[in-house]
Write a protein that binds this DNA or RNA. Sequence first.
DNA 1: GAGATGACGGGCT
DNA 2: AAGCCCGCCATCT
Length: 118
Amino acid sequence: MTEESFAEQVYRLTRAIPSGKVLNYGAVAAMLGQPREARAVGYALSNLPANSDVPWQRVVGKEGRYGKISIRSFSFSRAEQVALLQDEGIVFNDNEQFVLDHYLWQPSLEELDAILKD
DNA sequence: GAGATGACGGGCT
DNA sequence: AAGCCCGCCATCT
């Protein structure tokens, strides 16, 4: 239940991210109660099939106060992820970065609790 | 069970 | 500002 539970929670939480909002890997991990597992979050998402209903593009890396595309090489390219997020209204600067605070999803505790317990 | 890996992140250079 | 290094820890092999 260890691997499925954590990955499953990552997927569920990611699915709950509203269009136009993002979370960084560390924030996802923190919301799941384990602030040191940012890497595990990335690993869970790397297992995602290409036809998944999980909006993986809304989970991004964190670079200081910027959000940044962290994807390396995968089924989808960095440009694909940028395009998807731009379609959702996120404005990037010249370096595949955007002001993280401006788009960071901040659900209330009740909302978050409801999502994780469901 | 032991060692390697990684879609991270913060600190330092 | 951008890149390098190193610690974290669930998974993978």
